[in-house]
Computed example of a mutant assay.
Amino acid sequence: MFILQLSLIGICIALIPLAWVWLRSGADRFGKLVWVTTILTFDLVLFGSFTRLTDSGLGCPDWPGCYGAASPFIAHQAIQAAQAALPSGPVTMAKAWIEMMHRYLALALGVLIIAQVVVAWCKRKTLPVSPWWPVALLILICVQGAFGAWTVTLKLQPIIVTIHLLLGLTLLGALARLALSCMPVVVPEPAASRWQPAVWIGLALLVVQIALGGWVSANYAVLACTDFPTCHGAWLPPMDFAQGFQLWRALGQTKAGDFITQDALVAIHWTHRNFAWVVSVWLLGLGLRLRQFKALLTLANGLLALVALQCLTGLANILLQWPLLMALVHNGGAALLLLLLIMLNYRIAISRQSVRHTAAKV
């Protein structure tokens, strides 16, 4: 019964953006639907970060409901009993609502993607994209939902939490790519096409850095080094990389079941911090180079600004002891960087296709 209630909640939330899209004038309702879904996905990624940063991931220790109910309001007795039994534990009424709001938004996102599938196949002869795109997105969000369930049932196992984050950003990026395909684009100068490999490398470096950041967050290693630019007063502090990057283990434990050491947490933090220099230098150089193209100037400036923002918020997280707002901005900045690089890659790919088309005519 509560599964039906959860579904109705997701549908009701999804009806708000669906109604907005339907009431908009113009023929390109599918493109508007994809953009609205992309925005909701970005919001969901941020809310997922908020859920993790507020330690609300186990606010409802079962899945998909909360103590077998569709909302914390219905399950309030079980929540209060759990909180009374373990006041410092992960279950409180506030955390339960945060966790369930995250699930409600995920359900609404699933409804919007199902709507995309229906519209895409009904209008497949007139759409500029393949109807299989939304189908692939639907499969992806189902996989993402499975990892969301395992995040809870496996008690925030770091590798599951990290994969859950990466899948969420993959969904965000795929939706953004689909949205770009549904709208006209300004074609950059032909010379911009030679920078596509550099953009791809930048995107790959960013994905690695996001994965490292997810691993830091999943292992609560943000404050493993609280000084800068050194760590515990040393450029190369004692570190245990083997234990720190042991993937399949419980939160806070080694594979053998012992408590994870401080040296392992330092290794996790140190790797993310120092790889950030590699990513920043590459993206800053790329942004400066791409500013020469008028059609890419806004995106290039955005790239420079976001890299600067990420460096500042990353440093602030260390020096200010991981404030919630700064951590959220840092997470959101990473997602925006991903979107921006996808947009750059798409525009440069259009430029390369234009060059090839011109060469073929000659």
Rank of each mutant, 00 (worst) to 15 (best):
I139N: 03
V222I: 14
R124N: 09
G302T: 07
W97V: 04
V208R: 01
T41R: 01
T126F: 06
G202Q: 01
A69R: 09
I268A: 09
E99R: 03
R24E: 11
I74M: 12
R352I: 05
P72D: 08
C142V: 14
S193A: 15
L303I: 06
L338T: 14
V207Y: 02
H269S: 13
L315N: 01
F42M: 15
L171Y: 01
K294Y: 09
P90G: 06
A176H: 10
I350M: 14
L86R: 07
S49W: 00
L320R: 03
G59Y: 01
G302K: 03
A264I: 08
K361Y: 14
W195Y: 13
L223S: 11
G252I: 05
A96T: 04
G257T: 05
S56N: 04
F245V: 12
F259P: 01
G168K: 04
L23F: 08
L338C: 14
A250P: 09
G285I: 14
V185T: 15
A218L: 06
A94H: 07
I342A: 06
L336M: 15
F241H: 09
A305P: 09
L312K: 00
R177K: 14
A300D: 10
P61L: 14
I79R: 10
G145D: 02
P184I: 10
G168H: 05
N345W: 12
P197E: 13
L105R: 00
F73M: 11
P128F: 11
M1D: 11
H330L: 15
K294L: 15
A224I: 07
G333S: 09
T271P: 05
P64V: 04
A108D: 00
L23W: 10
M183T: 12
L337C: 11
S181C: 09
L290M: 11
A334E: 14
A360K: 13
W132R: 12
A349D: 15
H164R: 13
A115V: 05
L4E: 11
Y104N: 00
A295H: 03
L180M: 13
L205G: 02
P237C: 13
G332S: 08
A264V: 07
L53Y: 04
C225R: 02
Q310A: 05
L44G: 00
G31E: 13
P190D: 12
L205T: 04
A218W: 04
E99P: 05
L296C: 05
P131W: 03
L290V: 09
L18I: 13
Q144V: 00
F245G: 10
P184H: 07
F50W: 13
S88C: 00
T37E: 06
F259I: 05
G233P: 12
A204M: 04
P229I: 02
A146F: 08
I39A: 15
A81R: 13
G314P: 12
R291Y: 12
L203R: 02
N274G: 05
W150G: 02
Q144E: 13
L206C: 03
V186P: 02
L140N: 03
K294V: 14
D62K: 00
A191R: 10
A146Y: 03
W35Q: 11
L283I: 09
L127K: 08
M326P: 00
Q292P: 02
P61Y: 06
L319D: 05
A242L: 12
A146R: 00
V161I: 15
